[in-house]
Amino acid sequence: MTTVEPSLSPEGSAPILGEVPGLFTQAVLLSRYQFRDYLRSRRFVLMMAIVAVIGALLSFVLYDFNGAGLTSSAGAFYGTLWAGGVTVVIIFAGIIFGGDAIAGEFQNKTGYFLMGLPVQRSSVYVGKYLAAFTASLVAVVFYFLILIANGAHYLGAGALPYALWESFAVALLYLLALLGSVFLFSSMFKNSLYAVLVVAVLFLFGFTVLQDLISGLVHVTPWFILTYADSIIGGVFNATCMTMVGPHTCTTPGPRGTVITTMVDNATIPEGVAIMIAYFAITAIVGLILFEREEFT
């Protein structure tokens, strides 16, 4: 056996102690390495593949149906295709990048590596959230670029309505809120599979079914369900509703110059924004509290 000369600090030398960075700096540091881990992972490839498939299907349908009747205006084109697709992309990104983000720290024991260091638990939580948000943003931007490429082909390169940028911002707000909720569910479990399953079931169809049941059977506006708010991603294009005359009421031109007034059971834009902000704030705070109290048993 070879003996190693001790190369650690000799007797009397002081340990190497820098000033430990603050909460947010540590969170950003952690997010950089976590994001790097995501970029190299199979889950990132899977997410990009999902977006590519959605983009390919969309492009095929547009090509096969010669624009699918959506090329009359940029608002109709982007209002339908962006809003419809990005919600699915965001939900998948949330499940893939956030579903096991916190639960995995316990199950995979990566938490033991980080939590023995002089870091606050909140730094770990925020760092992982930032990394999941950034990775999801890459997926959203990828979908956006696919759509822009199709839009450029059918409508021309300059046909980018202002509402598209508004909708993009709303989509990011929705991503913030959804990830907040996903992280909250992830903090409730120490098993990654349970966390991912619960998040997937709830966001892929659970909340939608609940929303339909509440509004259809009980006739109560489901303002407290996050998926109720996601309609404003398309709502900002106002493509289906020509004029909002009041909350949940819109008018569209009818035959022979008449005006049709309809009740719409969707969130208004201020309502939707408020719901998303509230979801983000509440779930982030509750998730953080849960993580602070969780033990590495």
Binding site: Y33, R36, S41, K109, T110, Y112, G116, L117, F296
Partner: peptide, 13 residues
């Protein structure tokens, strides 16, 4: 400096 149980490091690092 701590080493508790057998921690896992992010696999891609």
């Amino acid at each position: 400096g701590t080493l508790i149980e057998t921690p896992e490091i992010y696999g891609s690092l």
